[in-house]
Design a protein around this nucleic acid. Sequence first.
DNA 1: TATGAATGAGGCTTCATTCAT
DNA 2: TATGAATGAAGCCTCATTCAT
Lengths: 230, 230, 230, 230
Amino acid sequence: MDAQSPDDSPWMPFENRRRARDEKREAVLRTAVHLFLEQGYHRATLNDVAERLNITKPALYNYFRGKEEILFECCLLGQERVDEVIAEIDAGGGTGIAKLRKLIQAYAEVMTTDYGASLIRFDTRDLSDRNSKILRDAKKSIDRTFRHYITDGIADGSIKPCDAKMAAFAIAGSLNWIGHWFQRGGDLSAEQVAEEFSVRLTEGLAARASRKTAPAPSKSKSKQTSGGKR
Amino acid sequence: MDAQSPDDSPWMPFENRRRARDEKREAVLRTAVHLFLEQGYHRATLNDVAERLNITKPALYNYFRGKEEILFECCLLGQERVDEVIAEIDAGGGTGIAKLRKLIQAYAEVMTTDYGASLIRFDTRDLSDRNSKILRDAKKSIDRTFRHYITDGIADGSIKPCDAKMAAFAIAGSLNWIGHWFQRGGDLSAEQVAEEFSVRLTEGLAARASRKTAPAPSKSKSKQTSGGKR
Amino acid sequence: MDAQSPDDSPWMPFENRRRARDEKREAVLRTAVHLFLEQGYHRATLNDVAERLNITKPALYNYFRGKEEILFECCLLGQERVDEVIAEIDAGGGTGIAKLRKLIQAYAEVMTTDYGASLIRFDTRDLSDRNSKILRDAKKSIDRTFRHYITDGIADGSIKPCDAKMAAFAIAGSLNWIGHWFQRGGDLSAEQVAEEFSVRLTEGLAARASRKTAPAPSKSKSKQTSGGKR
Amino acid sequence: MDAQSPDDSPWMPFENRRRARDEKREAVLRTAVHLFLEQGYHRATLNDVAERLNITKPALYNYFRGKEEILFECCLLGQERVDEVIAEIDAGGGTGIAKLRKLIQAYAEVMTTDYGASLIRFDTRDLSDRNSKILRDAKKSIDRTFRHYITDGIADGSIKPCDAKMAAFAIAGSLNWIGHWFQRGGDLSAEQVAEEFSVRLTEGLAARASRKTAPAPSKSKSKQTSGGKR
DNA sequence: TATGAATGAGGCTTCATTCAT
DNA sequence: TATGAATGAAGCCTCATTCAT
C-alpha cells in the first residue's frame, strides 16, 4: 500500500479541491491519527501529515491550531465513541454481567479503530494541561463505569463477589491491549475479537455458566504475537 | 523525597566518587528509566537525567553511546528478567495451568518494576533497527511461551480447550496494563497484584475450580482507576 | 468601546456596503494606523486589521499593495499634514520666534493624532528603500524648517543666538515625544498641550520675555508619566 | 566599518576561545544591542547576532533563555545606569534646579550609549508581561524623579512655578530623542550634548539667569537632522 | 573521567501574499 | 469586489551529540 497517496484525500492532485471544510478537517484527522499510530506522535511530523494529504504544512493550520490540537481531537473522537456506547448500554438496562459484556464488546470494537486506539496509544502528557485533564477525567469516568457494572452485577447476583477495582483493571488491560496488537485486515475481524473478548473476559466472573456460544477456537495461522507492535 | 537528589546516586556531592564503573552505569540506568517513565522518553532530556545524578550531560556518554542505548538497556533489563522467570518455570515442570499461573504471577511482578514497565511503556520504534528487532523478537518469544503453556494445559487437560492466541492476548493485555497503572507505594503491593492476577486471569481457563485462595476483595479506598497514567 | 467593531467601518454588517472606494481605503488606513500604534507594527497582523473592519485579509489587497504600503501611507498622511502646516506658516510671515511658535503649536497638535504619531512611532526601516527615502527626506525637510525659523529668529533678533541644530533637536524631541505619551481622552486636550509646548519650548530661546499667557499649571491628577507607552 | 567582524568578539576565529563566561555573555549583549538598534529588534535575527560573534545560533542559548531575554537585559542595563545616576544625585543634595541639571546631563549621556538608547528605542510590548512591567515601573520611577526635582525646585525657589508634569514631559522628550539621533563618532561628543542640554532645557525654567557658560554655538557642518534615524 | 561550550539537524509556528472562485 | 484556501519564507527554539580541555 502506498502511503503517499491515500485514496481518501480531498487534496488528490488534479482533482476538484472544493469539498466541504469539515470533510477536509476530518481528512486531516484521519491521516494524522493514522500516521501518529504508525510512527508514533513524536516521530511523525506535521510535514509528514501534510505530505500524505498533498498539501503543505501551514495549510494544516487552517483546520487546527497546532499539532497538539490534532492529537487531542483524535483522542477525543475515540473517547466520544466510548461515551456513546456507554450511554446506549446505560439506556438499555439488564443485569450487571449483561451490561458488562455489552461494554466489553463495544469497547473492544472501538479499540480496533484508529480513534479508539489513540485513546490509549497516545500519551496525555503530550497535551496541554487543560486537554490532558479532560481526557484523564473521561478515562476515569470510563473506569468507573466498568466498576459500576461489576458492583451492579455482584449486587444482582449475576457476578461472583470479587474486587471490582482489580477486575476492572484486568478487563480494561485486556481491552486496551487490543489497540496495540489489532490490525485491520489481519485474520481476525473486529467483531470476532469483540465477541471473543466479551465472553472470555467474563468467564471467570459469571456467577454461573451462562455461555451461550461455544469457545469457537479460531484456528488461525497468524504470526501475530501478544507482544503488541511496540 | 526530593527528585533532584536520588539517594542512590554515586555522584552525590561530598561523597566518595570512586565506585566501580558498573555501579555508576547502573545508577544512570535507574535514574533514566525512572525519568523516562515519569515524563515519557521524548520529553525527558539527557540533561534531566544528568541533573538528577548530579553530573553533566556529556558524562553520560562515558557509560552509554547515546540516549537510545540507555533506552534499549532499560528495556533489555526488563526483558531479561522475564526470560529468567520463564527459564525457572520451564525448569520446574508442572501442568500447563500451573506453569501459566506461575508465569502470570512472575510476569505481573516484573511489570511492577521500572525495568519491567519499560518493556511495554517504551516504544521499540525509538530504537535502532537492530535493537528494535532484538526486543521485538524477545517479546514474540515471551508470547510464544504464554501460548505454549496454554496449549500444554489444553493437552494435559488442566486448561479448557480455547483459542490459545486469543487467550494469550487477553492475559498479556491485563498484565502489561499493570505497567501503566501500578504505583509503588500505593495501597496494593506488587505481590498482592501478582497473586490476584494469577488467580483471576486463569479462572475462566481452568478445567476445574482449583482456586486455593478466596477472592479476598481488597476493600481499598484508592482513587486509582483502570485508565492508567496516560 | 468594543475594539472589534469600530464605528467607522464601511463594512459594518447589515449596513450599506456601497460607499466610495476612497472612503473604504481611508477606513482601512484609520483602522490600521490605530492597530499599528496600539500593538506595534510587527505584532499587528493584517488579519487583525481585517477583523476589525469586518472583512477578510485578502480584501485589503484591493486597496493596498501590501502591509508596507499601508504603513507608508499612514506616515505619509502625517507628514503631509505637517507640510501643510509649514506651508501655511511660511505663507503667513512674522518674526522667527513667531513662526517657530506657530510651528511648534501646529506640530504638537499633529503629534496628538494617529497619523501624526505614525510619523515618529513607526520605523522607516520597515518600508521599502524608495518609501523609506521619501519619508526620511520629508523629515529632513521638516528639521530644516525648524532650523530655518530659528536662524531667522536669530537674524531678526527675536531669538537669542544659539546653536540652531541643537535647539531644533531639543524642540523636535519634546514634540515627537508627544506621540508616545499623549492619549486622546486623557486629562489634557490636544490644544492644551500644543499651547503649553509652544510657550514652554521657546521660553529659553526668546530674546525677551514675550509670554502672553501665564504658565497656567494644570493641576491635573493624572497618573501618566513621561515614560511614554513603551 | 565591517559589521561582520567586530573587534571585541571573544569568538574571533582562530583565537583562544576560553575567556570568562561573563565576558562572553556581555559580548553577546553588546553585539545584540548594537544589531537591534541598527536593524530594529524584529528585523534583527538571532542568526545575525550569532554570525557577528562567529558562533552559531544555538550557542546563544548558553547565555540567554531566548531573544526576549536578551532584549530585556539590554534595556535593564540602560535602566540600571539611570538608576545609579539618580542615586548619586539624590545623595549629593543641592537645589531643585541643580539636581535637575545634573539629572539632565547624566541622563543625556546615558542616552548616547547603546544600552541607554535601548531603554527608549525598544518596545516594552516585545517583552513578557513580567519583564514589561519591570521596565515600565522603572520608567515611571524615573519620570517621578524628574517631577520631584522640578517641584523641589519650585519649592526652594530655584525653579519658576510651572506644571511639573508638562515640564518633565518636555525635558524627557528632548532627552529621549537623543537616543534616536545621536551617533557616536559624529561631530558632537556625548559630553557636549549632555552639557548643552543641561543648560538649554533648563533655561526657561530657572528662576534667574544662572548660566555659567556661554551658549557656545557649535558651528558644525553636520548633515544630521532632528528627524532621528527612523 | 568529567565538563563547559558549541553545533547541526530538525520541528513547530506565524504571516504576508497569491490564487481560483 | 470579496473570499476561503493554500503557500513560501523565515524565525525561534530544543536537544542529542561532539570536542577541546
